[in-house]
Nucleic acid binder design. Structure first.
Lengths: 288, 288
DNA sequence: TCTGAAATGGAATGTCTGCCTCATTTTTTA
DNA sequence: TAAAAAATGAGGCAGACATTCCATTTCAGA
C-alpha cells in the first residue's frame, strides 16, 4: 500500500482540461462527498480559483477536510496545488473580446514590423464579424433565402474587391448542386450573360463604395428585366440598394486600405447554405 | 485634514476599467513607491488578482505596507478590497469572448432557422481568426515577406475553395502595383503560364485538404524550376509543405461543410501588404 | 448480524496573512 | 537652512488559513 502513493497516479493533472477529464473519468468511483465536491468544482471553477478552502467547502456543503482529500485523491499534495490549476485556467483565458481587439489594434497602430500588419487585418476581420453579428436583420435573411430558393438559376454578380466573395458563393452553390452563373468579365460577354436572366431567376449582387460601374450597370439592366436582386452593400445610398428586392448593409472594417471580407463572406455563406437547406426541405414536402 | 478622509474620494472604483482610469489620472501626483506599485498593478493585473500582499510587494520591489497604502489611497479600506476588483475582472472577462462564441455555436447547433446558419459561419470565422492570431509564427511571416519582396513576378496559385483568397491577393497586389500573375484555368493554359516562372520569381500557393490535384501538380512543377514557394496549407503532411520554402499552417474552422476563409484571408492580406511595405522601404534605401 | 475497512466530521495546530504602528528617511515649506 | 509634513521601511500582532489528526459513522463482504 505504501508503495502505491509514489508509484501510481504520478501524472498529476497540470492543466484544467486534463483535470476536468480526469474527474469526469473517475466520477463513478468517487465516494459521495468527494463526488459532491467534484461536481461543485466543475460547476463553479471560478469559486475554486478565488475562494478559501473553508468558504468553498461551505458552499459545496462539505467539510474543508473533504476538499483536501479530494485534491489529494487527484494526486495533488493539497488544496493549494489543486487551486493553482483553477487559477492558471483564468490566467490563460484569452482576454476579453474588447481587450483583445484593443491590444491588436494598438499593436497594429504602433506599426512594429509585419506582425503588426497581420494583427491589423485580424482586428479588422474581428470587428466586422462582431458588427454584422449585432446588426444583421433576421427578417431580411429569411426574405433573401426564400427569394433565392425559388430561383431557377442564381446569378452571382460582383467585381474587383467583392469578386472573391462571388467566387466563393459560386463554388459553394456548385457544391450544393444549385444552378448558378458567375457573371465574369473574361471574354467581355457579360451583357449577353445578363440577357439570359429571367424573372424566374435571381441575382446575388455585391458591391461596396466605390461601386464598380460595371456591377451597377449590370444590376440595373438585370433588374429592368424583372429579375429579383439580393444585394450586399455598404449603405442605403448605394445604387445597388435601389435595384434590390432585399439588401443587406454590411460595414466592413478596413486596414491599410483593404477592406475585410469576413462579414460579407459569413453572410454570403449563410445565404448559400440557407438556400440549400430550404430547397431540400421544400422538395421533401413536395414529394410527400 | 481629518475631514478629508470621509468626505473626498468616496467614489471607490468598483470595476477594473474605472480603477485603471483613476490610476492613470493620478499617475503624476503619486509618490514614488506608490507609483511603482501602480505601474506594476496595471502591467501585471493577474499577479495582483492571485498573489498575496507579500508576494506582490516583493515582485514590485516595495514593502507590503506600501501596497496597502496604495490601496487605501485609492479609497479601498485595504489590499483585500483592491484585490477583489482585480479578481472580478478575471471572472467577468472569462464570460465574454469564449461564452459568446459558445453561445453562437450552441445556437448554430440547435439549428433554429437560418439565423443559426449565419451564426455558425460567424462562429467559425471568429474561431479561425482567434487560432491563427495565437499560432502564427512571426519568423515565418518575415521570411515569407522577404522572399516575396525580392520576386520579379509573384505567381498566385489556388483552386476551388481556396481560389477566392487567390483572387483577393491578385486584386491587392495589383492595387499595390506589384507585378503578379494569377494562375487560372479558364483556357487550360496553366502549364504554359507555370513554365514562364523563373527562380527570380516567387509563388504564393494555397491549398487545403482535400488538396486540388492541379494545385499540387503545378506546385511541384514550379518548384522543380527552382521557383521559391510560400505555401498556406493545413498541416505538415500537406504535399504543398514539401515544395515550399516557407509554409504556414492555418487551421480554418468549418461550418455546414464549408471552411471559413477568414484566417487565410487575414494572412494573405498581411503577406500582400507586407510585401508592399518592404518594397517601398527597400527602394527608398536604394535611392538614398 | 458481525467485522474490518473506507469515508466522513470536526476540532486542533502551526504557518502565513493582511494590516497596523512607529521609527527613520525624504521631501516640502517657510 | 530649519522646521514641518509626507513618505517609507520594518517589525509585530491578531486573525484566517490550509492542513492534520482522531473519533465517529457508513459501507462491504461473509
Amino acid at each position: 500500500m505504501s508503495l502505491d502513493g509514489p508509484t501510481m497516479d504520478e501524472r498529476v493533472p497540470r492543466d484544467f482540461e486534463t483535470l476536468r477529464a480526469t474527474i469526469l473519468d473517475r466520477r463513478e468511483t468517487l465516494p459521495k462527498r468527494i463526488a459532491q465536491i467534484a461536481a461543485y468544482a466543475l460547476d463553479n471553477p471560478d469559486d475554486i480559483a478565488f475562494g478559501t478552502a473553508a468558504s468553498i467547502a461551505a458552499s459545496a456543503g462539505v467539510q474543508p477536510s473533504t476538499l483536501i482529500r479530494f485534491a489529494q485523491q487527484l494526486g495533488f499534495d493539497g488544496f493549494t496545488s489543486l487551486q493553482q490549476v483553477f487559477r492558471e485556467r483564468l490566467r490563460e483565458r484569452n482576454s476579453s473580446y474588447d481587450e483583445r481587439l484593443q491590444a491588436l489594434r494598438a499593436k497594429a497602430d504602433a506599426g512594429a514590423g509585419h506582425r503588426a500588419i497581420f494583427d491589423g487585418f485580424v482586428a479588422a476581420a474581428s470587428t466586422s464579424l462582431n458588427d454584422i453579428s449585432r446588426t444583421l436583420d433576421e427578417a431580411h435573411l429569411e426574405d433573401a433565402i426564400s427569394l433565392l430558393a425559388k430561383a431557377e438559376t442564381i446569378y452571382v454578380l460582383a467585381k474587383r474587391r467583392s469578386y472573391p466573395v462571388a467566387s466563393y458563393i459560386a463554388y459553394a452553390l456548385g457544391k450544393l448542386k444549385i444552378r448558378n452563373q458567375l457573371i465574369e468579365s473574361a471574354a467581355g460577354l457579360n451583357a449577353e450573360m445578363v440577357a439570359f436572366a429571367t424573372p424566374a431567376d435571381a441575382v446575388i449582387a455585391i458591391s461596396f463604395s466605390p461601386y464598380a460601374p460595371a456591377t451597377i450597370e449590370e444590376a440595373r439592366t438585370i433588374s429592368e428585366q424583372g429579375v429579383p436582386i439580393v444585394a450586399i452593400t455598404d449603405s442605403s445610398f448605394s445604387p445597388l440598394a435601389q435595384f434590390a428586392s432585399v439588401w443587406f448593409e454590411v460595414a466592413e472594417a478596413d486596414f491599410a486600405g483593404f477592406r475585410s471580407l469576413s462579414a460579407t463572406m459569413a453572410l454570403a455563406m449563410a445565404l448559400t447554405v440557407g438556400v440549400g437547406e430550404k430547397r431540400r426541405s421544400t422538395s421533401r414536402k413536395r414529394k410527400a
